[in-house]
Amino acid sequence: MNIQLLALDLDGTVLTVTKDLSMRNIDAIRRAASRGIRIIPTSGRTFGNIPEEILSLPGVTHTITSNGAAVVEMKSGQSIYRQDISAETTAAILEILKEFPVQPSAYIEGQMYDYEQIDLENLKAVHGIGSLDKRIRVPDLAEFIRERGVGVEKLFVLYLDRSCAVAVREALADIPGILFTSSGECNMEINAAGATKGNALAWLCSRLNIPREAVMAIGDGHNDLTMLSFAGYPIAMENAVEELKAQAVDVTLSCEESGVAHAIERYLDRMDIRCEN
C-alpha cells in the first residue's frame, strides 16, 4: 500500500543533536509532500516549542505534541485531541519531586512552565538555547497548577544527578493514571496513561480515514515505540535505542547523516520504479 502519512519524530530524528534541520531532510520532506503525503511532526515537545522551520514545511496539516498528549490542527491552530494529567495529580507529583535533585518542567496548553530558579546550563545542554526564550517561569509549579486547576500535557523531569532515577520512579510508582517514558538517558517524561504517540497517531489516522498500513513512522527514542508499533512502515534511526531498532522493518542512517531523507528517498525511489514498470 502506498504511504499516505509520514509521522516524524523531531529531536534525534529530523533534527540533529544540535537541533539543526538539514537541507537534504527538507528536500526529501518536500518531495514526499508533493506526492500528496501528509507530514505529521510527532514530538515530545509542546506545540509552542516546535521550530517554525518544521511547521512551515509543505504537507504539515497536524502536529502530535507532548508525546501524544495533544494533536494540533494547523489550519485552526487549535488542539483537537487532548490527554492531560489532572491538576491534582500533577501537583502531587511535583511535591514528591521536590525531594530529589531534579528539574521538572510542565507542558500546559502548548507552553512550557518552569520554576523561576532553574539551571540554565542543563536546559541548554538538553533543549538547545533557542527553547529557553519560550519558557514561562513561576515561583512554585505545584502551587501554580493547583491554583489554575488546568490539566498538564506532560511533565519533563531533568535529572541533575542521574543516580536518583530509580528512586524517583519508585517514589512515584503508587500514583495512578500516569505513564513514564524517556527521550534520553538524562530525563524522565510523565504523561497521562493514555497519552502516547501511538494512540494519538491512531486517533488522527481514524479521523483522516488513513489505514495504519499507509503510515510510515520514523523515530529514535523510547517515546517512539508506540508510534512505530502502530505504523505499517516503522523505521528506526541508526542512533535509535535498541528496542526501537528491534521493532522496525528498516534502520536508516543517523540523524547526523540525514537519515530521515535517506528513508524517504529510498521509499519514493522504489515507488518511481514501480510506476515505470
Rank of each mutant, 00 (worst) to 15 (best):
I50F: 05
A70C: 12
F47Q: 00
A33C: 10
G77C: 02
A32W: 04
T65Y: 07
I80G: 12
T65D: 09
T46H: 01
P41V: 12
S76R: 15
L57T: 00
P58C: 12
I50A: 04
I29T: 07
D27F: 11
P41E: 08
I64V: 05
E53K: 01
P51W: 01
I40A: 00
T63S: 07
K75I: 11
F47G: 05
L55I: 12
T65C: 14
I40V: 15
I26K: 08
A32L: 06
N67R: 11
T61R: 12
N25P: 05
S43A: 04
L55D: 13
R30V: 06
P51I: 03
P51V: 01
T61N: 08
T61A: 09
K75P: 03
N49A: 11
T46P: 04
M74S: 10
G59W: 00
I39L: 11
I37R: 11
I29M: 09
A28F: 02
R31W: 10
N49R: 08
M74F: 02
S79N: 15
T63V: 03
G77T: 04
S56A: 12
S43C: 05
T63N: 02
T63W: 04
I54T: 03
D27C: 10
P51D: 04
G59V: 02
Q78T: 13
V71M: 01
P41D: 09
I50M: 06
P51H: 03
T65F: 04
A70E: 02
L57P: 05
H62Q: 07
A32K: 09
S66K: 02
I39V: 13
S66G: 10
I80H: 06
G48Q: 14
P58R: 13
I29S: 04
P41K: 09
E53F: 05
H62R: 07
A28M: 03
I40F: 06
G77D: 01
T42C: 15
N49H: 15
F47W: 10
E73Q: 08
T61I: 09
G77E: 10
R30G: 10
R24H: 12
H62I: 05
A33D: 01
A69K: 09
E52N: 08
A33P: 04
V60W: 01
I50G: 08
I29V: 13
R45T: 02
R31L: 11
N49S: 14
S79M: 14
H62E: 05
V60T: 01
N49P: 07
A69S: 06
A28T: 03
R24M: 08
T42M: 14
G44K: 06
V71F: 03
K75H: 05
V60L: 03
G44E: 14
V60K: 03
G68D: 01
T61V: 12
S56V: 01
M74N: 03
I50E: 13
G36R: 12
H62M: 11
V71K: 03
P51R: 00
S43E: 12
A32E: 08
S56H: 08
G59N: 03
I54N: 00
F47T: 13
R30N: 13
T46G: 14
T65S: 15
V72C: 00
P58H: 13
P51L: 01
G77S: 10
G44H: 04
S66M: 03
S56Y: 04
I26P: 05
E53A: 10
I40N: 02
T61G: 13
N67M: 11
